[in-house]
Design a protein around this nucleic acid. Sequence first.
DNA 1: TTCTTTATGTCAGTAACTGTCATCACGGGG
DNA 2: CCCCGTGATGACAGTTACTGACATAAAGAA
Lengths: 191, 191
Amino acid sequence: MGRMSRWKPDARGRLEKAAYELFLDQGYEQTTVADIAERAGLTERTFFRHYADKREVLFGGSAALQDELLRALGELPPALPTIEAVRIAVEAASTLMHGRRALARERQRIVAAHADLQERELIKRATLTAALAQALQQRGVPEPAASLAADMGMAVFHVGFGRWLDDPAGREFAEIVHEGFNQLKAVASGT
Amino acid sequence: MGRMSRWKPDARGRLEKAAYELFLDQGYEQTTVADIAERAGLTERTFFRHYADKREVLFGGSAALQDELLRALGELPPALPTIEAVRIAVEAASTLMHGRRALARERQRIVAAHADLQERELIKRATLTAALAQALQQRGVPEPAASLAADMGMAVFHVGFGRWLDDPAGREFAEIVHEGFNQLKAVASGT
DNA sequence: TTCTTTATGTCAGTAACTGTCATCACGGGG
DNA sequence: CCCCGTGATGACAGTTACTGACATAAAGAA
């Protein structure tokens, strides 16, 4: 017979799945880490080996977001104007959300209802912004243009994310982001 | 003899003072809420009646900051250009720091060393920014100009705060903020 | 095989935070 | 002058997030 793993695969993914199910079912505060671990067939201690704290289980995607952002940026020709490079990188990152609007909505509902989760979201965004600014500097963009461009890019991403969740037409996130950059340019040029 | 209060006055202030002393002496993590309460001559339970959590004891000033910001804004003539109103309000708020540079430096050291305190700082700043934006809207500033102006004002405040702490010339915070707005205008106008 | 690494379990412990009830000064009627 | 409501505090038990230390067993390398 096939190999018997002692451990069922993808413990981290099971923990995340269990956490979402329980948070949606009985609320974030009402769910203990022990509950999550039990549903995933693991122990509380193992949860904390995969996630630094209870909040982190809701932010597993931010690492992938940063990776994609920096990867896309790295592929672009250096001669590209800064804002165009940021636009393309942010659009690339925004495609990660494809097909996950319902999930993103549920997650947003949970985060919006808990101040400590909003704190975590803010620091994740700040970290992402700083990483983008640093990557731009390494492309040769001087300060403070690099930080300003990073801030603008993340602002468009953030505002666009909210619009995407509520968009009645159900447009793609990347499309909304694309429009967002157009509007940013219009505002910045005083139109 | 004078009236004997059952309780010594200013319990909240004593808790804050005790917290700062202990944080600086033995570190933030190494200080328990019980330690703070004991030094203040109170119990742990009473600490949590004055501060929602351990972090909050380091953020008592943010309410005063917001009050002063909005108060100053309310006194200005409505005809004033938005950015000028923001400038004056932020400068007024920045005078609250007068004579507290050493204290602010120590506080900054503590906050910078602990991720959870940075989270709290970010959400305080976001709250302040939102309050400023709303106040501007009530002055008749339309969106998104109100939010953008609020963001700019808080950005100048934040950047200026860091410069003030390190300023070798020891200039006043308000003076540094004033310069910051000049630089902001220069950047925004493409100079 | 044997050794090492890695993922997990077990268990005890700390400390943040909460709910509940008791206590005691103050102040205002009656 | 006494009673009573209010408000700040104490006492105390309980929950839960999180950590450290050690044990265990599968997976993989030698």
